[in-house]
Design a binder for these strands. Structure first.
Lengths: 218, 218
DNA sequence: ATTTTATCGATAAAAAATTATCGAAAGAAG
DNA sequence: CTTCTTTCGATAATTTTTTATCGATAAAAT
């Protein structure tokens, strides 16, 4: 019975903002505040209050109260539930060079529902080592081990030349979602979700905004 | 005279896609192909051909030719010019822990017009070292050095507790754009551009897509 | 107890982004 | 040389996302 509605009808844009709300709410919770208004959230995050209300109404179970706003703890619980922060998804990491090492060492992913259970690398010098408690296995074992562990999420942090190969192996192992940090477009079957962490795109947007700002001043 | 039009009228969504086009075009160039059609680009990148044409028409100087498509080399040049890939912007990096080290060591930023000229860290053990040719200075010198070097872009890769402080120092030093990798919302004056590299948001979107895919199957 | 104020949710309007349609042009094929 | 095919650019339609408006409600203030 019935939380299908939730998956639908919530726009990607909204989903993308939820983690920011979540962080803000955690701050408020830590500060001991019981309720928070859409106006306050909006001001802090540079959004409009209407948008905040709309986003929250899409995923919150309890309504906000006039004059008081929303209950902080309830909202956090709602976002946790909606984004699945309260039940961990296993993932594997491919590539433990500079970026991969950083990702493996970042303990925060657990709070976001992501649990890295194994890492892989082609470099023999790295195999057998451990980073942040995650063991590094040889690349050859990727597909086999992924299948055995029944992991559905793969994180690609290899140099761009190796990225497509890594993706192929992940798919072969039965992964259904790939978080790609390599600056290349991956070719995968249609029923596999790919999210490119495209830093070049972020940078492009940032530098255009910078250009605008400088332009408005002169 | 006259490239003001370019800054305006190009949507953020379009700008965000340009780096992907750029990468695809580089591949085609390397493969020796002279021209490429919007259909081909669209298919590879899982977009619609109309959208590709619209995006390109917003920034390209030459029109595409019926039956042939666009000239690969021209398009690359157009994107280079539009995104500023051909003239480097200086930047400083704050924080050379795991992620900061990875960013400093990534040589690819130069291709995206970003030149990291100095790094800063609070940990004495790191000061004076060099990562990827970038020297690490003490955090206390941040504002002063940024001002002296006349750097306009700051990259924050410190733990979240230190991020707001880093932002404050960057702003004090005269930075006008901040690329924030720490998972916190930064409070800065209105005339400073902030781009949050929000991995939690990416992850949220990815896992929702995964959930959808799995849902559609059963 | 009444008024004032801050806030909400719902609905409507506007803006932005994507997709569809179609005539025209340029090369390829016959 | 004519026809066919691919592709373009422009315009229109649609969809999605954001913003505006407004009556209702609950707490706070008078």
């Amino acid at each position: 019975m019935g939380n299908e509605k939730e998956l639908l009808n919530v726009s990607k844009a909204t989903i993308g903002r939820l983690p920011a709300y979540h962080r803000y709410l955690q701050e408020k919770l830590a500060a001991g505040e019981k309720t928070v208004s859409s106006t306050a959230i909006a001001e802090e995050l540079h959004l409009s209050a209407v948008q905040v209300r709309k986003d929250l109404s899409a995923i919150a179970r309890e309504a906000g109260k006039p004059k008081l706003g929303f209950t902080v703890a309830d909202l956090i619980a709602d976002i946790d539930r909606f984004l699945g922060y309260d039940n961990l998804n296993d993932a594997v990491l491919v590539g433990v060079g500079g970026l991969g090492k950083a990702l493996a060492g970042y303990s925060g992913f657990k709070h976001y529902g992501l649990n890295i259970v194994a890492a892989f690398d082609a470099d023999p010098a790295r195999i057998g080592t451990s980073i942040g408690g995650i063991k590094v296995f040889p690349a050859e074992e990727l597909a086999r081990l992924v299948r055995r562990l029944n992991v559905l999420i793969g994180i690609i942090a290899v140099p761009k030349e190796a990225a497509q190969g890594a993706a192929d192996e992940l798919v072969k192992g039965g992964v259904r979602a790939i978080w790609n940090f390599a600056p290349v477009h991956l070719n995968v079957p249609a029923n596999i979700a790919v999210k490119n962490e495209d830093m070049a795109a972020s940078l492009a947007i940032l530098s255009k905004r910078l250009a605008e700002i400088l332009n408005n001043e002169k």
